[in-house]
Structures are given as structure tokens and as C-alpha cells.
């Protein structure tokens, strides 16, 4: 539930920022549009699907694909729908307010389509979506008991956020610059600023680094900042904290493979420098990180969520036998 809401929020922000970014570039032709949008689809991992459904990558098709398309499991509508179905399953446990926000968002979203969003101004549309997601997080914090369920919600949220931040940084890898000489040029910097904005990190970055936007620092800030709440390090640390608090395991120890993996990642993020990351290659590093987040997710699922299915056939047989025993016993 919380993973999908976090994902929807990130997608909304990403689309919003990139629609605005386009306003800075005049007269983009088809090729330029494709160069602009394809990295964004690629970072969501759905480029193949997109290409099979649409012939061109313009603002309309990309927005539709990433906002309303039900075949795209990562579209905002799909995410909100999944979050809502999950919320329905635990409807008796979450607060009424939490449910109403998810449900309300879903119904509002159903009233829109791509054209109406483009016509009436995408800014407000995506702003509302982000606000709903934040409202949900706020309500979780203030109307929901902070026990096990809450911790799982936080784990889901931070796991997703770590993944999303890594993907947003990685967009820069996919974005080709018009000319190799443009590295460090106006377009390059505009793109890096868009990356920061997509993580709501523009102002926080400037508090930390007084200078102009530098690619090197942006990557460092979004990956390794110990205090910015969307940096990968912050997300992994926080989820590690919640994970250990479920089993009351002290830091520096682990009691299951989920804790082992999250603890290791956390330590590595603390003791890694941005120089080392660039030596390995930013893209390669992020790629590896995403794979480990997936492994961590499976480990958490195996440790806590998965319950062995009941074998109905065997149950029936067993109950029949018990009944026979009674009958035989008179």
C-alpha cells in the first residue's frame, strides 16, 4: 500500500518537473522530444512496454502512459488502484481517514484523462496528487497506531523511495547531451537541476552546497546525504531502523536475512565516498543498488509476510478422519 503511494507520488513529481523543464527549451522537434522523454520511461523500467503501445514519445503519449495507462503497472492510476485494493484488504486495521484519502484519490483520478490534464494545466493536477500522497503519509503518522503495522508501512515507503531516488539520478545516465562538449554546459546543468527538483531537493541542496549545481555534488547529495529524507542513505538507514525495531534487534546485529541485508547496505552507504562511486561508474553503482533493494524486498517478504498456504484438500481429509474416529469410538 504505502510503496505504491510513494511510487505514484514520485511519478507525479517526475512528470511535473519534466513538463516544466520542456518549457525552457524552445521548439523541440520529434527527435528532441524522444531524447527528452525516453530516459524517463527507461528509468521506470517500462521502455519496452511503452514502445509496444505507442509510436512516438511526445508529452501526450508519455503522460498518458505514465499517468493513466492501466497496462503499465507503474502508471499513477495503476499504483493508486493497487494501493487501494491493498488498503481494502486491511481496511479493518487502517484508519478511516487513511482509507478515504486513497479512495478519494482513486475516484478523482478516474474523472481525468490526458487531454483534460494538458488542457487545464498539468501543474495543479500533479500538485493535487502529490498533496494526497503526503496527506496519506501524514495521516498514517497521526491517526494510526505506531506499532508493527506502522513499521511495515514505513519500511515499504522508504524502500520505494530509495529505489525511486536511485532511478531518478540514473535518468541523467540515459539523457544524451546534444554534443559531448555540452558537459557542464547549460543543458547539462538544466538537466541536473531537474533531477534535484524531481526529488524535491533543489533547496535542500543549496543549503548544503552554496555553489552552483555541480553534477558531482548532486549525485553525492542524493545518494549519500545522511540527513536529506530522500537520499538513498537516509532511506536505507530509516528502513533498517524500523526493520530492527520489529524484532527488537540492536544495531550491529541481525536475526534474519532481511536485517542482515539492510544492515550491510546501510553500513556501506555510510562508509562509501562519492569518489568510489564514480570510480565504479555511477550507473553501474545504482544498478547494483537497485538489484540489492529487490533482494531486500524479497527477504522481508519471506521473513514476515509469506504464510504457507493451507492445503484445503489435506484439511478436508484430516477432518474426515477425525470424524471417523468419533463415529468409531461411538
Amino acid at each position: 500500500m504505502s510503496r505504491y503511494i510513494e511510487r505514484a507520488e514520485n511519478t507525479a513529481r517526475l512528470l511535473d518537473v519534466n513538463l516544466q523543464l520542456m518549457l525552457d527549451f524552445e521548439g523541440m522537434d520529434d527527435a528532441a522530444l524522444t531524447t527528452h522523454w525516453q530516459p524517463i520511461i527507461a528509468c521506470s523500467g517500462q521502455l519496452e512496454l511503452f514502445k509496444s503501445l505507442y509510436s512516438s514519445s511526445d508529452s501526450h503519449s508519455v503522460q498518458e502512459f505514465m499517468t493513466f495507462n492501466r497496462e503499465n503497472p507503474n502508471s499513477i492510476l495503476s499504483c493508486i488502484n493497487t494501493a487501494r485494493e491493498n488498503a481494502r484488504m486491511v481496511r479493518d486495521q487502517i484508519s478511516g481517514e487513511m482509507w478515504e484519502v486513497i479512495n478519494g484519490t482513486y475516484h478523482r483520478l478516474r474523472n481525468w484523462d490526458t487531454q483534460s490534464v494538458l488542457d487545464s494545466g498539468a501543474y495543479e493536477f500533479y500538485e493535487d496528487l502529490k498533496n494526497d500522497a503526503l496527506l496519506f503519509q501524514g495521516l498514517t503518522d497521526s491517526t494510526f497506531t505506531h506499532d508493527q503495522g506502522y513499521k511495515f508501512i514505513q519500511i515499504g515507503k522508504y524502500l520505494e523511495r530509495a529505489d525511486q531516488t536511485s532511478r531518478i539520478i540514473d535518468i541523467k545516465y540515459h539523457m544524451l547531451l546534444p554534443d559531448p562538449d555540452d558537459v557542464g554546459g547549460a543543458v547539462d546543468l538544466a538537466q541536473w537541476m531537474a533531477v534535484l527538483r524531481s526529488c524535491s531537493a533543489f533547496e535542500a541542496y543549496h543549503h548544503r552546497y552554496v555553489d552552483e549545481v555541480q553534477p558531482w555534488y548532486v549525485a553525492e547529495f542524493l545518494t549519500l546525504s545522511p540527513t536529506f529524507p530522500r537520499s538513498i542513505r537516509f532511506c536505507v538507514s530509516t528502513l533498517d531502523y524500523h526493520l530492527r525495531s520489529i524484532s527488537s534487534t540492536a544495531g550491529g546485529q541481525f536475526t534474519n536475512s532481511a536485517e542482515q541485508q539492510s544492515g550491510r547496505m546501510r553500513s556501506e552507504l555510510i562508509y562509501t565516498t562519492i569518489d568510489e562511486i564514480f570510480t565504479e561508474g555511477l550507473h553501474e553503482y545504482l544498478d547494483r543498488l537497485q538489484l540489492r533493494l529487490i533482494d531486500l524486498n524479497s527477504a522481508i517478504f519471506e521473513t514476515y509476510v509469506q504464510q504457507p498456504e493451507i492445503d484445503i484438500g489435506r484439511e478436508i481429509e484430516q477432518q474426515h478422519q477425525q470424524q471417523q474416529l468419533i463415529l468409531a469410538g461411538g
Binding site: I312, I316, Q319, Q322
Partner: peptide
Amino acid sequence: DPCVFRPDSLLGVPGIIN
């Protein structure tokens, strides 16, 4: 209870009637 009433029922609980 699929043991007692409809064996095809996946909604019930085997043995609940016992």
C-alpha cells in the same frame, strides 16, 4: 464447511462444523 456441505466451496473452513 467444504467437508460437510459444498465440497467445492473455497470460502469456508474445513472442520468448522466438527
